[in-house]
Amino acid sequence: MSTTHLVDVEPTSSDRPNGEPTPRARRRPSWGRVLAWAVLIAVMIVTLFPFYWMLRTALSNNNALYADPGSLLPVDPTWGGFRRVFGLASAEEAAAEGGTTGSIHFWLYLRNSVIVATVITAGQVLFSSMAAYAFARLHWKGRDTVFFLFLTALMIPPIFVQLPNFILIRDLGLLNTLAGVILPFFFMTPFAVFFMRQFLLGIPREIEEAAMIDGAGHGRIFFGVLLPMSSTPLVTLSLLTYITAWGEYFWPLLVGRADEARVLTVALGVFRAQTPQTGPDWAGLMAGALIAALPVLILFVVFGRRFVQNLGYSGIK
């Protein structure tokens, strides 16, 4: 059904790049190209605006928001939203700005999120890469069968295994611990194994054979030769894993509701549920949302170039 749908609707959007196709003609701007750029710029504005709006709201006085909802700049600028979220504001101060007066411990949740995402990324990328090596480079009976089994897990909607996983974590006594939040993602995901295997398959065999002739064992070859060669896919996979782990909501909602194991996503959900229907603390909420968004955005600025250039690899191949 999707095919026909695509075919029907596509014209409007794609006849825009009606500029000159060949490189030689690129220098001459045409109306088609101008229009195409206009569309692309519009897409970027729609992409960026909500980020700005988060910041603008977070820096506003929550009471004043109601008076001037359309202001492009922060209304009656204040750090109050951030102060409330980090538990720095007194009850009077919070009330004066129309903010929530409940106690929120975003430092703790931020710390939890950092621990969870970091440990998951480290474990998952390392162990999945090791498995990928065994699937891509070693010869053993049953290899392809085992790999196929790993892959089938890719098609299973997480909720199906997470219900029993909840019981498992409960029985292990790990409910409301960071370990419980981390464990199911720590050892592997089918995707990570698949991704690294695909990359390792592309490395010429001669490299390992040369190392082998020099007397290197598989451990040396993997850790000393192949991993250092794989820095780009490793960065890409690590960032993807970090983004996913950082944004995960469902699983930590099941096993990490208590304060000591609560991550930022769950904390935001709780914050939103606690805020009153009439006159919610939008400034505080957006301050919290911004804090939850920022760490990954910073990682992206640092590692983003390679990530963007290699994305196709990750999602498809």
Binding site: M130, Y133, F135, P190
Partner: peptide
């Protein structure tokens, strides 16, 4: 090489799927 990943696979994918 596949031991750690297999632990994860069996404990958090295969067993829970059957369960």
């Amino acid at each position: 090489f596949i031991a750690p990943a297999s632990v994860g696979y069996v404990a958090f994918y295969l067993m829970p799927a059957l369960r």
